[in-house]
Each structure stands twice: as C-alpha cells, then as structure tokens.
Design a protein around this nucleic acid. Structure first.
Lengths: 198, 198
DNA sequence: ACCATGATGTACCAAACGGTACATGTACCA
DNA sequence: TGGTACATGTACCGTTTGGTACATCATGGT
C-alpha cells in the first residue's frame, strides 16, 4: 500500500500541530517532533505547501465526518440546539478546534492552500443543518437563516470558550440561545414575524 | 518627540499586515513593504516579539475604542442588536477584523506575545455590553448571558461574512438574531425593570 | 538470484532569517 | 561652536529554512 505510510505520517503531523499550533511550522522542526526527518516529509508530500494542503483537507474531511454523526433524536429545536452545543464543546475536541480556527485565519488571508477549506467551511454545514431544520418542520427560508445563525453561534461561543476557558459562562450563553430559538417554533407554518401582543 | 516616529512606523506595519496577513511575517519583508529597513524595526521595537506585542496591543486598544463609541440611541433590544451588527459588519473594518481573527488564532495557541489580548478579548466586551443591557432593563443575569451570546453571534457571523462574502445571507442571519432576542423583552416584563424614568 | 519499487539517511545548497556592530547623518541645546 | 541624543544605512554573523542529489536499505514479484 502506498498511502499507508504517508497517511500515518500525516496523522502524526496533525496530532502534533494540534498541540503546538500551526503558524510557525517548519518542515524540519515538525519532522523532528514526530520522529522522522524533513527528508521524509518532502518525499511524501512534495513540498511544504503540499503538506499544508493535505493537513487542511484532512481537517476539513473530519469536520464533515463530525457533522455526519450529528443526528436528530429529538423534535424539539431547543433540545436539538442543546445537543449541538454539547457535541461541539466537548473538551476532547478543543485541540482540533484550535487548529481549525488557525486554519480559518489563514483562509481569511487567502492563503492558496486553503482553497478547499474556504469553500466548504460554511457551505458544508449550512446545507445539512438547513435540511435538518426543514425536516423538523421549519419553512425553508427560516431554516436557512436559523442554520446560518446556529453555525455562527457555535463558532462564536467556541472562540470564547477556547480563549477564556470559562465553561460555565459560555454554557450559560449557549443555553440562552437554545431558549431563544424556541421563538422559531411559533413561526412554523406561520410566516410573518409576530410581535407578542397578548 | 520620541514616540512619534515609532508610532508612525507601527501604524504603517499594522496597515500593511491588514492587507497581507500576519503569520509569515518577517522583519525584512515587512520593513521593505512599508519603505524602511529591518534595521529600523529592530531599533524601535527591539526584537520581532517586541513588534508583535506592540501590534497586538494596538489592535486591542482599537477594539476597546470601537466599543467605547458604541452607544445606545434606542431602547429596543432588537434595534440595538441591528445597530450593533451594522456597526461591526461595516466593510471598512474587514481588514482589521481579518487581522483580529488571525491574532485570535495565535492567542488560542498561547503565543506569549498575545497575553494582553487573551485577557481582554472577551472580558473587554462582556463587561460594557452587560452594563448596557442592564441599563436597558434586563435583570443582571439575563444581561450577562445576552452579552456573551451577542458577542459570540457577532464574531461567528463575522467569520462567516469574511470567509464567504455572502453579505445577504449573513445579514439575514443577523436579522434573525435581532428578532429572536425580542424573546428577552418578554422576560423583562416579568422582572422589576430598572428603566431610567426622569 | 535478480531487479524494480518504495522508503530512508546523509550531506549539501542558495536564500532568507533574526539580530548586531559600526559608521554616519541630523537635529537641537548650550 | 561643540556636543549630545536620536535616527538611519551598510555590512556582516551564525542559524535555519525549503528543497535536492545521491547513496542505501528493505521487500516482494518473477
């Protein structure tokens, strides 16, 4: 198998980058850290940018995979929102998410090796989540808005959590969003925004 | 004046970094780009890390300043949320915000020159915004949650906007949040409102 | 037995890096 | 006028960088 050694190497690279960060990555330093030589990285990935592309693609594939395992289990939007947050805020994912945001930052600066990432970082989520919300009974326009907002809430809260570590406060804000989103239930099938006037 | 030349230099550095990004910054390249020599950057900032610290601190100070100019003008939470989003999503700010998120990513990896940034990136906002919401009549617990959530929404949507450029869709999601937050108004009625009645 | 193919170590390259020594310029104050 | 503090250009140092040439090793098919 040709891919096996290479994939194992890639896996070790990602693992190490999740620990120390990404930006000041040098082939030699990385190679030493994962117990190989920079010669091997060049051999398998061609160049530094080749490595970066494969790392970014792997992270993006994992993001997609994580999304695929996110299934409903409930009909209640509030419960769904809570489950969503509980899933993505799992401390085990923190290193991967730090790396994710680092790649995101590079993507915002248009680094060429982030092309695939840039295209999928939002679209890969809004599509499936919109579908999910539609299946849960939201009119499609509301579902699309809610999906985009939920994604933003998740990422924004994650940024907060990773920076401050203040889990209680961030969980609390997430809970508030889960409660607020209940307001959407009222709109099911009943489109015009409704001011509550008893 | 001692600080003037240095500050002008720093200003030009930030300006350039907002255009090309931050991560692969080298003293020589940056110096050439802003029309000076790397010798001058070392002279004024001592070292590369010294420069980074000053850049990050400047960005953080500007963030604080931007916050200070954010004033109420309305009593309605929904309108307040709209105004907030309109302010931060101004295209003029996009380069500064790209740089902001890049620094944020470095901060998540614990880079030592981001110490000040890390401490203030959330706290500098939640405090004042909580106060603002309290002044608008929210009970303090709700105000704190809403402030934290609003900050996350703003940053999450900004990430989306900067990556996709899909202003219509992101504005739409922001509008949904503005409408959802109306749900908080209902809670205000149930609690002793501390409205400023002359 | 032989050789093709993939994997790996060693040694090197030119370029760029952060940083510094030193000499020079420029201003203003005494 | 002389000096003193800040500013700037040049030229260099040792180190590290991405990348490569070349030789070697292991393995498995024929």
């Amino acid at each position: 198998m040709s891919g096996t050694a290479k994939e194992a190497l890639l896996e070790r690279c990602v693992e190490h980058l999740q620990e120390v960060g990404f930006s000041d990555l040098s082939m030699r330093e990385l190679a030493a850290a994962i117990g190989t030589s920079h010669r091997m990285l060049h051999y398998h990935f061609g160049s530094r940018d080749g490595l970066l592309v494969e790392i970014v693609n792997l992270m993006e594939a994992r993001q997609r995979a994580a999304l695929a395992t996110l299934e409903a289990g409930t009909d209640d939007l509030t419960e769904l929102s809570r489950a969503f947050w509980k899933r993505v805020s799992d401390p085990v994912l923190a290193p991967a998410e730090r790396l994710f945001f680092e790649i995101y930052a590079h993507a915002l600066n248009g680094r060429p090796w982030t092309a695939g990432f840039r295209e999928s970082v939002v679209a890969a989520w809004t599509g499936p989540v919109t579908d999910m919300l539609t299946r849960h009974g939201l009119p499609s326009r509301e579902a699309a808005r809610a999906a985009r907002l939920s994604l933003a809430v998740g990422r924004g809260l994650l940024l907060d959590l990773l920076a401050t570590g203040d889990r209680a406060a961030v969980d609390d804000a997430a809970e508030l969003f889960a409660e607020l989103i209940t307001g959407l239930e009222a709109r099911r099938a009943r489109h015009p925004p409704r001011r509550d006037r008893p």
